[in-house]
Amino acid sequence: MRATYSATPADVEPKWFVVDAEGMVLGRLASEVAKVLRGKHKPIFTPHIDTGDHVIVINASKVRVTGRKAEQKTYFKHTGYMGHDRKIPFASMLAKHPEQVIEKAVFGMLPKNGLARNSIRRKLRVYAGAEHPHVAQQPTPLSISKNEAK
C-alpha cells in the first residue's frame, strides 16, 4: 500500500498565469485566483507547502459586481484611535485603487496564515490597465469563464 504523497519545495515548479478581469464578477474571479495561488489546481497540492503559481491580473478597473453591491459594499479600516474608523464605498475604491479591490477579495478567499500572506505578497500582481511588465516570464492565459449573473 502506498503512503500519502507530500510535496517538497524541490518538487514545485511555479508557472505564470495572466487573467483579464474585464467584465468578470469580482467574487468568482477572486476564488479562481486564490485557488491557483494556493496550488489547489495541481495534483501535488500539499497544504503546508507553497505549491501555488504566480498570477497576473490585468484590467482590474473593469471588474464588476452583481446585484446592488456597487452601491452598498464598503471597505472598512481603523486608524487605531477611538472613533476613527474609515468606511470607503466600493465605487470610490474602484475609481482610486482598483488593484486593492482585487487584492482584498483574493485575500479574503485565502486561509489566514503565513503561507497565504507570503503567496499573496510574492505571487499576486494586479494592474489597473491592460499592460504589465512581466512579459519575460511568458505567462499563459488562465481560462476563467465569465459567468453572467442576472
Rank of each mutant, 00 (worst) to 15 (best):
42 K>S: 01
85 D>L: 07
84 H>I: 12
87 K>D: 14
123 K>I: 12
129 G>T: 11
110 L>Y: 02
73 K>L: 08
74 T>R: 12
44 I>H: 03
65 V>M: 08
59 N>I: 04
50 D>C: 14
52 G>R: 08
42 K>F: 11
138 Q>A: 15
109 M>N: 09
143 S>F: 07
146 K>D: 05
127 Y>M: 09
131 E>V: 14
56 I>R: 01
142 L>R: 09
121 R>G: 13
71 E>S: 11
40 K>E: 02
147 N>M: 09
95 A>F: 06
123 K>E: 15
99 E>S: 15
64 R>Q: 14
52 G>Q: 00
126 V>D: 03
106 V>G: 00
122 R>E: 08
125 R>M: 13
49 I>Q: 01
31 S>N: 05
85 D>K: 04
76 F>K: 10
112 K>M: 10
30 A>K: 02
96 K>R: 09
135 V>I: 11
93 M>F: 08
83 G>I: 04
60 A>K: 05
108 G>Y: 02
27 G>N: 06
28 R>E: 09
54 H>C: 13
132 H>L: 02
39 G>N: 00
100 Q>A: 09
120 I>M: 02
52 G>E: 01
73 K>S: 08
44 I>E: 04
124 L>Y: 06
128 A>G: 04
88 I>V: 10
57 V>Q: 00
51 T>M: 10
37 L>D: 01
30 A>P: 03
139 P>N: 10
137 Q>D: 10
35 K>A: 05
82 M>E: 08
128 A>P: 02
53 D>E: 01
58 I>C: 02
74 T>K: 11
32 E>C: 13
28 R>F: 12
83 G>R: 00
117 R>W: 13
139 P>S: 03
114 G>T: 12
100 Q>W: 12
